[in-house]
Structures are given as structure tokens and as C-alpha cells.
Design a binder for these strands. Structure first.
Lengths: 179, 179
DNA sequence: CAACATCTATCTATCGATAGACAGATTATT
DNA sequence: AATAATCTGTCTATCGATAGATAGATGTTG
């Protein structure tokens, strides 16, 4: 991956995570990194391609984080806390929420490729959680995984709206005690 | 409220709930109900005013629904199920999600007035849930309310992304048994 | 007549995308 | 090694479409 392409993606990720798909424009990205919008098209032919690559990178990062975590010597409880912490860090009040919560909310009218990749992000998280709850001997790992993933996503939306991190933590504390 | 104004709001709500704030344009709304975009401006001077009124109406509807439900003779468990059902109905696969989940996700870059009203929507729901869990003798009503609200919102995002209602129901079933 | 409601016409700003040119680096051919 | 061909990355300039918003004329209704 080219250096310029990465700068573009970094800027694009910030825009989407704060304002959504429509808030990311080639002109703004170009201006931010000091090139012309036509040069952005050189690296990413279409907006769809850019956003799609964005989600791909985002999911790859989650996967790396989760794989490392699963391979670690930490307890299942600590691993669950690590998952919660990943979401905690994704929420920056007044700046950004999780990329896939944003695009997930907007997914109905997004190009299919983007939608599919957002879906893949959620599947990655859900599968990992399910395995964790299974190892921990939870009675219904599938439900626990779904509830955990959903409540973290939703708590982020609520907290971002209220501009109040405590709105997120109320849910986070509950989840960290699920195992 | 004028008849035309209501038609505008109905159309606007559909647009926002499927594509977000940016997907709602005066031209589209006007075309859908057979008037000119300048006439939409007559009823709602700005886009912000329209969206803000939209959230106000949306919250008023929730409040009416919840007040009726709370005043009913149904059990606390049935009342909780009724809350879940409100969200269930708000999710129409491939068509729309909850207005305030969408605007909540996008809230960072939305005009403050809209953001505040989305916040009021969540407060309405959370207060009602808290009271319900209190009546039901739940150990920590505040947490239960937060988790319920968050997980319903998040489950809607996940289910909408996957285009799979079961993704919502996994969480819904869990919540309906919380009391 | 007065108000309410809608119209025509237009403005400025921005959007994603494309065409065509150019300099400089790299690679292939002689 | 020298030259030719190609690739890379950026530029300027422009396209048609769409955005929200406004002024002022026109119609409608009580």
C-alpha cells in the first residue's frame, strides 16, 4: 500500500467515522493531505472502492487484535474485557464512533460491496465472542455473543449522542462481568 | 400541523431512516408528494428545522406509546416485551431502522438542536425502562435500562447490515426474559 | 381584502468523475 | 551503456448533477 494511499485512507476513515459515508468527499480528503481530488481518484477509482477498502483494513485490524488476544495467556474474563476495550477506544467523544457502527446504520442505501464488508466485520467479532463464551462455559454462547456485540454498538451510539462516556460505561461494566 | 407539512415529514422520515440525514433532500421530498422544493421551504425554513421537528414528532410518538403501556394492566414482563416490540417494528429490513439510531450514529456532525432532540428520545426510553426495572425489583435498574436500550439499538444496526431479522431476534429474546 | 400556499426562476456551492497533459522514475531493448 | 518504452503520480480544467436556499409573482380560500 502506497504512502499517499494510506494518508487518503486515514483521512477518509476520520471523515466517515465522524460524519458518515456522505461526509467523506474526494475534495476534502485531497485538501487535507495536500493533493488534488483527481489524484485521489488515481489511488481509488471510485468512492465505493475507497470506502470498501477502508472497511477491509478496519476489519483486518480487528482480526489481528482479536487473534493476538485469543492466543494470549489471559483469562477469558480478561479477554472479554479486551473486546470491550476495543470498542471503548473506538469511541472518541465528539470525534468518532466505530466505522462499522456508522456504516452499519447507513447500510441500507450503501453499495452492496461495502455492506458485505461491514457484515464481515460483525461476523468476525461475533464468531470470536461466541468462541470465548463457549470456552467460558456459558449456557448460551450464541446469544451472549449477539447481545455483547449489539450492546457495545448501541451504547456507542447513545454515548456519542449524549456526548457522555458514562453512557457507554454503564453497558461496558455490565458486559465485563458477563463471564 | 398542516396536511402538506405532514406529508413532507412522512417522506422525510422515510428518507432519513433509510439513508441518513444527508439522504434527505428538499427536491426529493417535493417530487415525492408532488410540489416544488421551494414549497417545502415554506413549511420548513431549513433542513435543520425539518429534521428537528421530525425527531420531536418521533419522540412524542414513543412517549405516547410508552405512557399507554405503563398505564395498562399488563405485567412488567409484558411491558418490557412491548418496549422490545416497538424497536422490532421500527426495523424494516432493507427499508428503515429507528430514526434516532440513524441520527444518533451521525450525531457528531449534526446541528446541535437535532442532536439534543435525539438525546431526549434516548432519555425518554431509558427513564421508562429504569422505572420498569425498578418496579420489577431488578437489582440494578439503571444498568438494566442502559443495556436494554443499547442492545436494541445495536441489534438493529447489526440486523440491518446482515439483512437478517434473526440477528435482531437473538438479542430481543434475551431481553424479553430480563424480568 | 387578507392570509395562506404554491409557483417560477435563480443563486452559490459542492459533489463524484473524467479527459488530457506532464515530469520523473523504472524497465526493456538494442 | 544508450536509447526507447512504459509506468507512476500528479496536475489543470471541466463535466453534468445535485445540494440548500431565496426573491418575488401567482393562485386560492375564507
Amino acid at each position: 500500500m502506497n504512502e499517499t494511499a494510506e494518508k487518503i485512507m486515514d483521512a477518509a476513515e476520520r471523515r466517515v467515522r465522524s460524519g458518515g459515508y456522505g461526509a467523506m468527499s474526494f475534495r476534502d480528503l485531497a485538501a487535507e493531505i495536500g493533493i488534488k481530488s483527481s489524484s485521489v481518484h488515481y489511488h481509488f477509482p471510485t468512492k465505493e472502492a475507497l470506502a470498501s477498502t477502508l472497511v477491509e483494513r478496519y476489519t483486518a485490524r480487528l482480526k489481528t487484535y482479536l487473534d493476538d488476544e485469543m492466543a494470549s495467556e489471559r483469562s477469558t474474563r480478561e479477554k472479554l474485557a479486551a473486546f470491550v476495550d476495543y470498542y471503548r477506544k473506538a469511541l472518541e467523544l465528539d470525534h468518532s464512533i466505530c466505522l462499522c457502527v456508522m456504516l452499519g446504520a447507513e447500510s441500507i442505501e450503501l453499495p452492496v460491496q461495502i455492506k458485505e464488508r461491514v457484515q464481515a466485520f460483525y461476523e468476525t467479532g461475533e464468531r470470536w465472542l461466541e468462541e470465548l463464551f463457549e470456552v467460558a462455559g456459558k449456557e448460551d454462547p450464541r446469544t451472549a455473543a449477539a447481545v455483547t456485540l449489539a450492546s457495545l454498538s448501541g451504547a456507542m451510539v447513545v454515548a456519542s449522542t449524549a456526548n457522555d462516556r458514562e453512557q457507554f460505561e454503564k453497558t461496558a461494566r455490565f458486559l465485563e462481568k458477563l463471564i
